[in-house]
Structures are given as C-alpha cells and as structure tokens.
C-alpha cells in the first residue's frame, strides 16, 4: 500500500485520539465514577440500576416505617405493663377490701387509691409517640381516654407494608385490650365499680369485681403478648428490609461500580497504548526524505 503523508498524520491523529479517549474513560472509572453514565453504554444495566434504586428506596421506606411501628409497639407494651401493674395492685386492694377483717376506713382509703389508679391508667394509655396517640385507633390526634376512662378513639387499626406487597396490622386493638370488646372486660368500668364498692363499704360488690380483675389482668397481659408478637414480626420485617436494601445496593453496584482491579488494569493498558501511539506518531513524522536532503 502506498503511504502518503496525510495518511501518516491522519493515522497518528486517529490512534492518539482513540488512545486518549480510552485513557480518559479508564481514568474516570479508576477514579470511581459510574460505569454507566448513559443508558447507551449498557441498556439493560441502566434499567437494572433504575429498578435497583427504586427497590432500595422501597426497602428503606419499609425498614423506616417498620422500625417506627416497632418503637411504638415497644412503648405500647410499656404502657400496658404499667396498666397491668395497676390492675395487680387493684386486685390486691380488692382482695383486702373483700376481707371481713378490713375496716370501712381501710376500704375508703383503698377507694381513694383506686380513683388515682383510674387516672393513672388513663394517663398511661394517653401515650403519645411522635405525633400519634397510639391507643386512639385512627383518632390519633387527641388523647383517646378522658380522665374518667371514657374512650374517645375508634376501632381503626394501622396497616403497614412490611415487605413489598405484604400488609400487616401493626397496632393493638384498644377496644379489645382495654375496653373488653369481644368478650373481655372494660378495665375502666371495672376499676370504677371497684372504687364505688370500696367507697360504699359494699363487700359483696367488692367480691363481685374480683373475677373481673383476673380477666382484666389476663386481657392486658394478652395485649402485651400481642404487642410482643407484632414487635417480633416488625423486627423481622425491618431486618428483611435492610437485607433487601443491601441486596439492592449490591445489584446497583454490580451494574454501576467499576471493579477496582479491572479499572486499574485498564488504566495501565490505556497508558501504555497512549505512550505507544505517541511514540509511533513521533517516529513516523521524523523519517522523511526532506530531512535527508538538507
């Protein structure tokens, strides 16, 4: 093939430009930039990154809401623990009051303590976590219990996505745990009855509350068990969501992040290629008849 001067210069131009472009790209990747900056570089990889980022956000959001619900249930459990302790004390006072040896004055004194307990239970259940009164059902913007124990909340139960597409009821049903709906006892009504019976020195009335207190204590304990079970599920959901986040990050990284060893090798090769291209170019420019004729 006949080699002309333009061919020599054009080829030198082309090879050095190509080597420089390769070195620029290798340098960019070695510096940790993404492998894909334009979907044309890897269409399937680009789509996978977009889907991966969406998964990442979804799992992060599930982990966040599950973790928050876990905290709320933890606080609900503590509040129910307080209510349980109050009921146990109320049971003690009821047993004492039902005893014929107890004086009317002692019963009156216990009645005063039970009145305070009613306020204590209402305070414990008017628990606010963040923005929500968590025992209020969907009426979570205001304290769900009046000080006399009347319930101002509703039967709403919070539903959360605990895994993609999987929904779970994540709040306790106050009307069952405290108000005794579905066959239980109304804790406040029971305490009110007890307080009134104690104040009235009504021993049969006090004795009539004793069975109810056992049921109430079991009912609240059952609520705590339910809270514990939900917390376990939410902990698992949070862990699974975090694992999902990690998997999504890994998937994104697999498509987006250059392999450091590969990137460094590519950079070294590109440097050699550029060096060779420049050397060849300078050599081919040097050897002409023009220089020899001088």
């Amino acid at each position: 093939m006949r080699v002309t001067d333009r061919l020599i210069f054009e080829r030198a131009n082309f090879t050095t430009a190509r080597a420089r472009a390769e070195m620029d790209e290798a340098g960019r990747q070695a510096a940790g930039s993404s492998k894909i900056e334009h979907p044309g570089q890897d269409p399937a990889g680009a789509a996978a990154i977009v889907a991966g980022r969406a998964q990442l956000d979804r799992f992060a959001s599930i982990a966040r809401t599950s973790s928050r619900a876990f905290d709320e249930l933890g606080q609900a459990d503590a509040a129910l623990g307080e209510v349980g302790a109050i009921l146990a004390r109320a049971q003690q006072l009821a047993i004492q009051g039902a005893n014929a040896a107890t004086s009317p004055t002692g019963r009156a004194s216990s009645a005063v303590e039970i009145e305070a307990m009613i306020l204590g239970v209402a305070s414990a259940l008017n628990l606010r976590v963040g923005n929500r009164y968590i025992f209020g059902g969907d009426q979570d913007h205001a304290p769900p219990f009046a000080m006399d124990g009347s319930y101002l909340g509703d039967t709403g139960v919070r539903n959360l996505e605990v895994a993609p597409g999987v929904l779970l009821d994540t709040s306790l049903r106050t009307e069952e745990v405290i108000k005794g709906a579905g066959g239980g006892v109304d804790v406040f009504a029971l305490l009110r009855t007890l307080a009134d019976a104690l104040a009235a020195d009504d021993v049969p009335g006090i004795q009539g509350v004793l069975d109810g207190l056992v049921v109430a204590i079991d009912q609240v304990a059952s609520g705590r068990t339910q809270a514990g079970g939900l917390m376990n599920v939410l902990q698992s959901a949070t862990d699974a969501a975090k694992a999902g986040e990690d998997a999504a990050k890994l998937e994104i990284s697999r498509h987006a992040d250059p392999d450091p060893v590969e990137a460094a090798t590519r950079l070294a090769l590109a440097q050699h290629a550029l060096d060779a291209a420049l050397t060849i170019a300078s050599q081919s420019f040097r050897l002409t008849l023009l220089d020899k004729l001088r």
Binding site: P39, I49, A54, R58, S61
Partner: peptide
C-alpha cells in the same frame, strides 16, 4: 436518562411511593 441521575423520574417516583407509604403510617402528621 442517566440511570444515576439524582431527581430523575425514576428517583422521584421511588421517593413519591416512599413518602406516600410513610404518610399512610401516620396520616395525620
């Protein structure tokens, strides 16, 4: 269409869902 673009449609769509989901857990907030 850079897949890593912050605040691209894919990114904001994912954030939209995340915030909708968060609000569903505390709708009065």
């Amino acid at each position: 269409f850079n897949p890593q673009l912050q605040n691209g449609v894919g990114d904001t769509l994912a954030k939209f869902y995340a915030d909708i989901r968060t609000l569903s857990a505390d709708a009065g907030n």
